[in-house]
Amino acid sequence: MATMTHDTAVQRRLRSGLICAVVSASSFGLSGPLARGLMNAGWSAASVVAVRVLVAAVVLVPIALIQLRGDWQLLRRNASLIAVYGLVAVAGTQLAYFNAVSYMPVGVALLIEFTAPIAVVGWLWLRHDQRPTGATVAGAMLGITGLVLVIDLRSGLSASWVGMAWALATVVGAAAYFILSAHGDGTLPGTVLAAGGLLIGGLGLLAAGAAGIVPLHATTNPVVFQDFTTSWWLPVLLLGVVTAALSYVTGIAASRLLGSRLASFTGLLEVLAALTFAWALLGETPHPIQLLGGALILTGVIAVRRGETTTD
């Protein structure tokens, strides 16, 4: 009876975690097409991200304050975690990505960034002696192969050493996102971690813009998508509430329920979601090879899930 209860609890935890992971990846995937619309209207990439994370912080901070219930000691005990999460997982990853794409094709930079699950596996193996199973390794190979097919690399593989260094920094930031999201003493609510990290990350991006590290400029021009035109504030609101606030909260929940390894591989679905939203909003029809890549990503995630289940 105890074994059956344990198995049921594990399955329920996996199911809830996968739902959160899919919601997070899908929400993150919407950010690219929405951001492209704003950038076509005259916004800089850094401005889009800074506004996105700060709007999310405004949405989440009141909820975080309610969850804290005045327990400022809890906030102080986790101050370093929140600060590192905001500066590395949020702001650092974005800054590294912006600099990477200034030296190399976008597709190449994305491909390098989304090898982060392999970095997560390596970290857990070396640091915590969590050796990956055969199913996890096979799923990783399928997922990365699918990623290569989904991401458009027709612009070429040429890149400078400086660009490669920035791209590798995005891998560190993305891996840190999953590892730190799963971290904590069990008492820090995920919303508090997300709100604090987004606020610190957004302020960090504004500081980087003020220092001239990234360009910050925005307009109030109408934003044009495939079948409609809208005011600038609607994409900004969606970016902040859906693609940041919702994405980070559900992403933290997924990492805590699934563990950083499985959550990071499920995060590959973000690329598939971005492809779908780009098709709907920007008219960028996917090629058959990209659809095959999406199928391989899904197969890889399922394989990793089976591998993680066998370790419970």
Rank of each mutant, 00 (worst) to 15 (best):
T3L: 11
H6W: 07
T8Q: 13
A9I: 12
C20I: 03
A21I: 09
V22Q: 10
A25C: 12
A25W: 09
S27E: 07
A35R: 05
R36A: 10
G37T: 10
L38A: 07
L38K: 06
L38M: 10
G42E: 02
W43M: 08
V49R: 03
V55G: 03
V59G: 09
P62M: 11
A64W: 09
I66P: 09
Q67I: 03
W72F: 02
W72C: 00
L75E: 01
V84F: 04
V84L: 13
V88N: 08
A91R: 00
Y97R: 00
N99L: 14
V101H: 08
S102T: 09
P105T: 05
A109S: 13
F114N: 03
A116D: 03
I118P: 01
I118Q: 01
L124T: 09
L124V: 08
H128M: 08
A138F: 05
G139F: 05
M141F: 08
G143A: 09
L149K: 13
V150I: 15
R154D: 14
S158T: 14
S158D: 14
A159T: 14
G163F: 12
M164V: 15
A174K: 03
S181N: 00
H183L: 04
H183K: 07
H183D: 09
T187D: 13
T191Y: 06
A194P: 03
L199M: 14
L203H: 05
L203R: 07
G204Q: 06
A207S: 12
G209S: 02
G212P: 11
V214T: 02
T219H: 02
T220N: 08
N221K: 02
V224I: 07
F225H: 03
T229F: 04
T230N: 01
S231P: 01
W232T: 08
L237E: 00
L238R: 00
V241E: 05
V242Q: 01
R256I: 04
S260K: 04
L262I: 06
S264A: 12
F265K: 13
F265T: 12
G267H: 05
L272T: 15
A278H: 12
A280H: 10
L281M: 15
L282F: 07
H287V: 15
I289K: 06
L291D: 13
G293K: 02
G293V: 10
L296P: 08
L296M: 12
L298I: 10
V301W: 04
R305H: 08
G307N: 08
